[in-house]
Write a protein that binds this DNA or RNA. Structure first.
Length: 701
DNA sequence: TTCTAGCTATTTTTT
DNA sequence: ATAGCTAGAA
């Protein structure tokens, strides 16, 4: 074994038969442990095809398998690894018929789901009569949550969406029709992949036996982010031999919004009696100062496995907290610091900027670009969410599944003079026919859009039959689509054309269309050029969710401001706790340096949207961060933001000797005045600071 | 039935 | 700021 292990890791790696739960704090060598476990099993003669490795991303699985392979030798291949969804996809293709599906079913994404709900809503004429019907997005969220949590829709509404309770009947009916629509059109959404996989194992003894015989050893990474359906899948596969290892950290559970329940990991020993629990607490990633910050963040959390990370790496630099006056200044500051790091010789690949939501980095992206710093953005908008990509993908989907009404609808609506009503009629005709292509050919069309329809039919006649490579199909499709693109998106079609060129390159790597379609649904490429570290390392801008499991020397966490992080959309209690864990995940990505920033004011859609330090920041003990110089920068926008200026600054101010309270610096005494609205305060635990009363939220204590 | 101009609510996070 | 939606014109 080439990778060194500590005793706890070794215990996990060399565990014999039976269930084992590994509680692995951030940076404690979780991946190394899993890799060695794989290698250990293979070294003990377990055939790779008898191992199933379930991970959070496909990339993680590939990396672990290749590292394990390099330890054991060339015993590669046959090991099955990937996300729950991708493994479910593979097995469901094989056993589809047991569930009443064809093996050629198509995976539908969120956009499809919204399209279906739209169609159904109008065909069921819901929302037409008076009341404001919940948005399709909401409807999808409710349905998905009910499925993933294995609870009825009514329960989800009561628990999370009580304001939609009056629509319960309509949503339930919509949900039933949605299920029926997917079956009729050979579609499976993300939830179906899991649920159908679970049903296959639970209700179909033949396939279940084969799958169990195949996967004698099951390993699951990031178990804290599994939902009840996934937990059931693991149980159903692993239960006869109980050779199951799950690894995770309840403190890093950040996916409850898609049904994950961190209690899964806490209850694992109950599910598998005799579970051996191993805790990994020695951190090999971060300096002690960073861990102190992480421990301080998570100290406020309620239930969970108690653990305290420690390291022998050394103290390192203290995390820096830098308040900035607004987002533009924040962006300039962060870009400037990144420049300094780069000039100093740090590798771009060792710098990451993390934030709560995709759009939080817009200003920074502009700033970095103007400094000529190359970056790669993770999370946020995906390539296939853009309209032009969906357009092109629709052609491909119809080749595989000619009954895909959604795609027909999409293509037909691109034709001028052809609107939703006509499209619906044509789609109906296509659906009722055994051969939708010839149904279209025969459809009585008026001159206005008949030409467009004929063109479409002609195109499909050319590319049908499955003899062409995906790249060749793309070429033929573009002949027809390109003129349409130029009309449809007259203002910015060159940009979209560039995306399509990227798609063309991507397609070059595929031998067949079905695997291309599966991949764009299950492993979607990112929006901006989907470079995958192309430049041999660039600065990473990422949502915290997408940064899970990764690490860098230097980590910036920006927009730690009220109203941004925690997001205003998140509520109290458990939701707030999850936001806190998110903050924990963010800072524990860092090896050497952490920079925390927040703008004192944030502009939202209309006026001001919040700003000032996040409660997570103000709750930190004073000694875990170093606060950067508090020199106020002029406020832009000015105006009537009552949250930024303290009530006292308007009414005359403070006198020397007053006891005051600051949201971050806590208690102090005013020891001097240096201007008409500036005071010097001696803080009990932070020393002297000069504060501008227009900006600092200072209160009388 | 389609198109368009103006209105509105909207902004987590992802397989 | 923007996309998605509604109401009214063509």
């Amino acid at each position: 074994m080439t990778e060194a292990l500590n005793p706890a890791q070794r215990q996990a790696v060399e565990h014999g038969p039976g269930p084992i739960l590994v509680i692995a704090g951030a940076g404690t060598g979780k991946t190394r442990t899993l890799v060695c476990r794989l290698a250990y099993l293979m070294g003990r003669g377990v055939a790779p095809e008898n191992i199933l490795l379930l991970t959070f991303t496909r990339k993680a699985a590939e990396e672990m398998i290749s590292r394990a392979t390099s330890i054991v030798g060339d015993d590669t291949g046959r090991l099955t690894g990937g996300t729950f969804h991708s493994v479910a996809n593979i097995l469901l293709r094989r056993y589809a018929r047991h569930l009443g599906y064809e093996p050629g079913f198509v995976i539908s994404d969120r956009g499809d789901a919204e399209g279906i709900v739209n169609l159904l809503r109008s065909s069921l004429s819901l929302g037409g009569h008076g009341r404001r019907f919940p948005s399709r997005r909401m409807v999808i969220n409710v349905i998905s949550r009910a499925v993933n949590r294995c609870v009825p829709i009514g329960a989800v509404l009561e628990e999370q969406y009580s304001h939609l309770l009056e629509f319960q009947g309509d949503i339930e009916s919509l949900a039933r029709h949605y299920q029926a629509f997917k079956r009729e059109h050979q579609l499976m959404d993300y939830d179906d992949l899991l649920v159908n996989f679970r049903d296959l194992l639970r209700d179909h003894p033949g396939p279940c036996r084969e799958i169990r015989e195949r996967f004698v050893h099951v390993l699951v990474d990031e178990y804290q982010d599994t939902n009840p359906v996934q937990a059931e899948i693991v149980r159903l596969i692993a239960v006869p031999g109980n050779n199951v290892m799950v690894v995770g950290d309840d403190a890093q559970s950040i996916y409850s919004f898609r049904g994950a329940d961190f209690r899964n990991i806490i209850q694992f020993p109950d599910l598998f009696p005799g579970t051996v629990v191993v805790r990994l607490e020695e951190n090999y990633r971060s300096t002690q100062n960073i861990l102190d910050l992480g421990n301080a963040i998570i100290a406020h959390a309620g239930e969970g496995f108690k653990k305290r990370l420690f390291t022998s790496i050394g103290e390192g630099d203290k995390p820096l907290l830098h308040p900035l006056s607004n987002e533009a200044v924040q962006a300039r500051y962060v870009a400037g610091e990144i420049k300094k790091l780069l000039d100093r010789g740090d590798s771009a690949a060792e710098i990451a900027v993390l934030f709560r939501s995709g759009f939080h980095s817009y200003k920074l992206e502009i700033e970095l670009a103007s400094l000529g710093i190359v970056f790669e953005k993770r999370g946020g908008m995906k390539l296939l969410e853009s309209a032009h990509i969906k357009d092109v993908v629709s052609y491909f989907r119809l080749l595989i599944n000619p009954h895909d009404s959604l795609s027909w609808n999409r293509l037909l609506l691109m034709l001028p003079k052809l609107g939703p009503k006509t499209a619906a009629k044509i789609v109906q005709a296509a659906r009722d026919s055994d051969d939708p292509f010839s149904a279209l050919e025969e459809y009585p069309a008026p001159a206005s859009w008949g030409e467009g329809l004929r063109e479409l039919v002609l195109l499909f006649q050319g590319i049908r039959g499955g003899a062409m490579t995906p790249a060749a199909v793309f070429g033929a499709v573009m002949e027809v689509y390109r003129p349409r693109l130029e009309i449809l998106y007259a203002d910015d079609y060159p940009r979209r054309l560039r995306d399509l060129e990227q798609l063309d390159i991507l397609l070059g790597g595929y031998a067949d269309i079905p695997s291309f379609l599966d991949d764009i649904a299950l492993d979607p490429p990112e929006a901006d050029g989907f470079a995958d570290g192309a430049a041999g390392g660039s600065v990473i801008l990422s949502t915290i969710h997408s940064a899970k499991g990764l690490e860098w020397d230097n980590v910036f966490v920006i927009n730690l401001a009220e109203g941004r992080f925690p997001s205003t959309r998140s509520g109290f209690g458990p939701e707030l706790e999850e936001e806190r864990r998110l903050f924990y995940v963010a800072v524990t990505r860092a090896r050497k340096r952490v920079f925390l920033t927040y703008p004192r004011e944030v502009k939202g859609y209309g006026g001001f949207d919040g700003g000032g330090p996040s409660p997570f920041v103000t709750q930190l003990p004073h000694d875990v961060v170093r606060v950067a110089g508090l020199r106020p920068v002029p406020v832009y926008g000015g105006g009537d933001d009552f949250r930024v200026s303290s009530p006292t600054s308007a009414g005359g101010g403070f006198a020397v000797g007053d006891r005051v309270k600051h949201p971050f610096f806590a208690l102090g005494t005013v020891i001097g005045k240096t201007g008409k609205s500036k005071v010097v305060v001696a803080f009990d635990r932070h020393g002297n600071k000069e504060l501008h009363l227009d900006y600092a939220r200072l209160e009388r204590a």
